[in-house]
Design a protein around this nucleic acid. Sequence first.
DNA 1: GATCATATTATCACCAGGTACTAATCCAGT
DNA 2: ACTGGATTAGTACCTGGTGATAATATGATC
Lengths: 195, 195
Amino acid sequence: MIKVVRAIERLPKRERQQQLARLIEDNPFMTDRELNRRLKVSIQTIRLDRLELGIPELRERIKLMAERSYDPVRSLPMHEIIGDIIDLQLDKSGISIFEIREEHVFSRTGIARGHHIFAQANSLAVAVIDDEIALTASADLRFIRSIKLHEKCIAKAYVRSGPGEGSKAKVEVITYVGEEMVFQGHFVVFRSKGE
Amino acid sequence: MIKVVRAIERLPKRERQQQLARLIEDNPFMTDRELNRRLKVSIQTIRLDRLELGIPELRERIKLMAERSYDPVRSLPMHEIIGDIIDLQLDKSGISIFEIREEHVFSRTGIARGHHIFAQANSLAVAVIDDEIALTASADLRFIRSIKLHEKCIAKAYVRSGPGEGSKAKVEVITYVGEEMVFQGHFVVFRSKGE
DNA sequence: GATCATATTATCACCAGGTACTAATCCAGT
DNA sequence: ACTGGATTAGTACCTGGTGATAATATGATC
């Protein structure tokens, strides 16, 4: 039950802790010593602040980063289909939704990396083919405009050639953000019927 | 001169150092303590070995990983590049290696999903462009043959148009498994010149 | 002004995971 | 028997902390 006295004009502690959090946020490699010089408080105060804010020490921070970037599974969450398929009419059409999150963008610009957009479209193009095995044979892509953090990509796939037409299917995928077309891809997908 | 005798019980130095390097390679988070127990030599020997092999201490290794995944300065944010870039001549060419693992294949067939192959090529195509921001504008892909579990994909990128030619660069990426060409992509990459 | 709570600073002991250096020991080959 | 590389041992020291305890500062409240 810690009560904060509100009569004070400047709340050095709160404010300082915010600054501290921000400093560490955008340079996680700062030692407490650097932070204490930066914020003009003793190193002990820095440590108390970290404790209160639940910010681990330098080495732990670094280790966490390293582990995240190392993690062989997380490196691209592409095990399965990228995006949530919300409609699928085999050999006809399909729709999937994929929201751009932090891990999909260039951190400096907030623009989605092309391969995630491709991955959604490719996953859908393969999924829409009603066959035992479906593999992308070739593709022709146009990234119409850059896609940014938190945008929801809606990919629509249309099969342009039926199942009777041999071992190849043509699938067109168009990805929208809202009304806007942001990506277009023409896929040729190999299919190997039954056995 | 010195004759090579191979009647020794313990592993020769050379071999142990290879093992050491391999152990650290595939688990960089190992302390010297763990390594000495693993290799059955004293911790001092481990340290001498690391010294000779030029392998930094645990904390340095971790820090390097974190920095690589963080790096706010460089024009290529490596932290989600697919494949290991082993050679890079900006605006000219680049080579990356990517090994197909369990998580990259269709589990039923052991064949790599197309978007991983694309991701490697796309990452390389973007990385090879020496610019503040580089984004894929369009691409034309051919998946020449299916790529299977554990195959090592070597992608080679060649920039086909120089930096003086406006805001678009053409990059050709060819991916090989051994001598065999397995994928080819023509990328058009937008570049937004720094200044 | 005296008192109380909170905030801040100061010390001290300790820890992991090392480096750097010196010295001892093993072990084989000539 | 002596030599030299490889190995092991031991010590001092380093960074960047944790954890506990105590002293001091700064107000707010009675």
